[in-house]
Design a protein around this nucleic acid. Structure first.
Lengths: 243, 243
DNA sequence: TTACAAAAAAATCTCGAGAATTTATCGGCT
DNA sequence: AGCCGATAAATTCTCGAGATTTTTTTGTAA
């Protein structure tokens, strides 16, 4: 059958076998959740989605189950599936855990990384920079390509970490942050700042300066929190507390 | 229908709705994987398992998908499901990540924990101690009850941590370690030592001595590694290196 | 004897329909 | 008017059979 998935270079989670309908549906739904087509908190009714994604209920349920393991969908027995809600609290929590995991992974990567690792890092940074220059276009395709290369850059950064678990965990958390990142990009898109941060990351990494690197990385991870808090996107529950 | 699951007090993952067949199958299979009924690396053929667990293929597939998110089962598209392999490397990796997560969660718990938290901790420790005294019996029921209370104890320890994600992550990792813990219990079961460690954990926690607590906890988490390495359980790949 | 290729068997993946449960609607009562 | 229970609709959960793919077996040739 071989559906055209147009996912030739996607180095994403749960890959290795993009040939099943489950996998295809999984990716498509995940993409639509990240893009906001399926809003946070929205109920994902199997009966409706099966027509949208042109698969049977069983297939769809399995795809949704995969999304549950990514924490992008929540399932409550006998009451169906729901898009994972977004909130300031969740973003805080996510950023906190990300910071913990990402920083530790980077430290390990710095210890074990050799020449090939540096090569991968520089290479992915270069490709990311190229995508950054095209961000002015503001089309969905361009943004998604940037997002993909951003993922690959951060993956390369920790790729010398000796712990497969930590690497996988980092990837999952990175994916969860994507929705928030996209939200924060709506407000103050300062690609220049982001580029500078990435540049600093590379520099400190190549200089093997772990403490400086972690410092920048922490700020980098927390950036969406600050942006979203400041712009008051997302209903801040205690926004009226200032009164 | 309401099958008798005999899981009355199980405070486990993916709970909240144990009323579906998927959930029931999920728990049963998980239990059998942890108990070693389904050996590491073993292929989980849906056609065979559907008779064993008396559910249809679709239901079984969904239950297996849930186990994939627990990292107890690995799925490779178009080639079915397999019990996650066990190895010294994996144990090292798991213990490393567990140590990272568990220690951070405990530190947070120590910061935020109040009187109710101390109450939960003392209470769960007491119940765990009671179960420890019965461990001489060496029956499966007694061991499983101990394992359950051990889980609850460690959960209570981090229960004041403000990060839901970190708490859930800890629980997942704890579950993954269960197979190795059971294996290490086969060799040198020194319940007295384990009890002492738990006692120290409680003492340092109540004394709010974070550094000491983390120190003990790290040793505690790494214990199975030492035991399994020493007894040479699991095929140590370079065991013949000593020759 | 070993290697290679085609056929057979087994297993997975996929589907649509039926049973059980939850949610919404409507009528009656205080 | 507002609340509560019964009926109806919608949705989820579950199943077994059929289509694809993978694995094993078998036969043939070098």
């Amino acid at each position: 059958m071989m559906l055209d998935t147009s996912f030739t270079s996607s180095a994403s989670l749960h890959d290795g076998a993009p040939a099943t309908l489950i996998e295809t549906a999984y990716r498509e739904i995940r993409r639509n959740i990240v893009l906001g087509v399926h809003a946070p908190g929205e109920k994902l009714r199997v009966e409706h989605l099966k027509t949208r994604y042109a698969v049977s209920s069983g297939t769809l349920r399995e795809a949704l189950a995969l999304l549950v393991s990514d924490s992008l969908v929540v399932a409550q027995g006998q009451r169906g599936f729901t898009v994972a809600p977004m909130s300031v609290e969740d973003l805080e929590d996510l950023s906190y855990v990300r910071s913990l995991v990402e920083c530790e992974a980077v430290r390990q990567s710095l210890i074990h990384g050799g020449d090939e690792w540096e090569g991968r890092l520089v290479s992915s940074f270069h490709r990311l920079s190229l995508a950054e220059e095209r961000l002015g276009a503001r089309t969905a395709e361009v943004y998604e390509e940037w997002e993909r290369r951003n993922f690959e850059f951060h993956e390369a950064l920790v790729s010398a970490c000796a712990s497969p678990r930590l690497i996988r965990l980092r990837a999952t958390l990175h994916l969860q942050a994507e929705r928030y990142r996209k939200l924060s990009a709506l407000d103050g898109p300062r690609p220049r700042d982001v580029h500078n941060e990435h540049q600093q990351i590379v520099d400190h990494a190549l200089a093997r300066n772990a403490d400086k690197l972690v410092e920048v990385l922490q700020k980098h991870v927390r950036r969406p929190v600050d942006v979203i808090l400041r712009s008051n996107l997302l209903g801040t529950p205690n926004a009226d507390k200032a009164a």
